[in-house]
Amino acid sequence: MLAHIGRRFAGLLLVLFIVAALVFFLTRLAPGDPAALMLGDQATAEDIARLRAAYGLDQPLPLQFALWLKEVASGNLGQSIFLQRPVTQALLERAEPTFFLAMFSLAIAAAIGIPAGVASAVWRGRPVDQTVSGLAMLAANIPSFWLGLIFIQLFAVKLGWFPVAGYGAPEAGFAERLRHLLLPAAVLGVVNSALITRFTRASMLDILDADFLRTARAKGLSERRVLLGHAFRNVLVPVITVLGLTLALLIGGAIVTETVFGLPGIGNLVVSAVLRRDYPVIQGALLAVAAIYVLINLLIDVIYTLVDPRVRY
């Protein structure tokens, strides 16, 4: 087990190095100079050159990359060009909305997707199955920004149940923060429930005709106990896999939803950084998201051994 985790951790470092290289060099391919954008149209060539030298932007790209990797290895993601503070601090300030949005969205997606997938598999070929499959296909193809605008118009503007946008005042408590997050979380939960529904349905269908389920029924166990106590327990591994991947996607892919709802999360920070060509923030944010993604995958591997004793490394 420990040897497997060690191998996965070594692979994690390799993935992060590849992500770091791609992010670093691809951001430099985008047109625009952060120094020129920061100083404005009235800046002279000498002023721009001076600012570029101050941030090391005049160095060769391989040297810049090596210096940045050295800082990252020491736990420093760099200094934001526009925010004038460490990238790590900027990310931590924006992490709370993104984290809670991802967790609430995952809870809603799981609450919709898992029961719907089980019901669709149990009553396969019947109206329930056809309805669930159709709704899952519809949810998978709805753009999150469009659904977000519909939810804002209906639940925030017309009914007034939720705030239109924002994250509340700085002194707002957790209940007020939750009220601001419920609508965007519902949007992401509905959209991402489609994958969980289809994955749960497919996993359940693979096992419903298994011999051990027929044995359980022959022993006189109720259908509910057969389905929940035996069938569903045996599909926990693939369900946990899709839940973990969904969580990783929610953390890294909520940019559009955060922008629509005006949430001051990491996604909104990255959008602003891209517009400003704030290289350190873009690099730091994407590297942090990639690290979370691979760590979630590593955690899923560990959880496998807890939910299914047959899994051994």
Rank of each mutant, 00 (worst) to 15 (best):
T305N: 00
V281I: 15
G189P: 11
V187K: 01
S272M: 09
L247E: 14
V274D: 09
I266A: 07
I292P: 07
N192E: 15
M204C: 08
T241N: 14
V226E: 13
G284H: 05
P238E: 14
L213V: 13
A216E: 14
A290Y: 04
R198H: 11
L205P: 12
R276D: 14
S272Y: 01
A216R: 04
V311L: 01
A210L: 07
A285C: 07
T197D: 10
L249V: 09
E171W: 03
I251F: 11
L221S: 05
D206H: 03
N192I: 00
L298R: 00
I282M: 10
A186Q: 06
V226W: 01
Y304Q: 15
T259A: 12
V237D: 13
F261G: 13
G265I: 07
N268W: 02
A175N: 03
V239E: 11
A288N: 08
L182Q: 06
V289N: 01
A216K: 03
V271Y: 06
F232W: 08
L269S: 10
T246P: 12
S222P: 09
G253N: 10
A285M: 06
P264D: 12
F212W: 08
L208M: 14
P238I: 10
V239K: 03
L221C: 09
P184C: 05
K219F: 07
L236H: 02
I207Y: 00
T200I: 06
R179W: 11
A186K: 02
I296H: 00
N297Q: 13
L228R: 00
L183C: 11
I196M: 08
R217G: 12
S193W: 04
L243D: 13
L188F: 04
L250Y: 05
V281R: 03
H180T: 12
L249D: 15
A288W: 07
S203Q: 08
F261E: 13
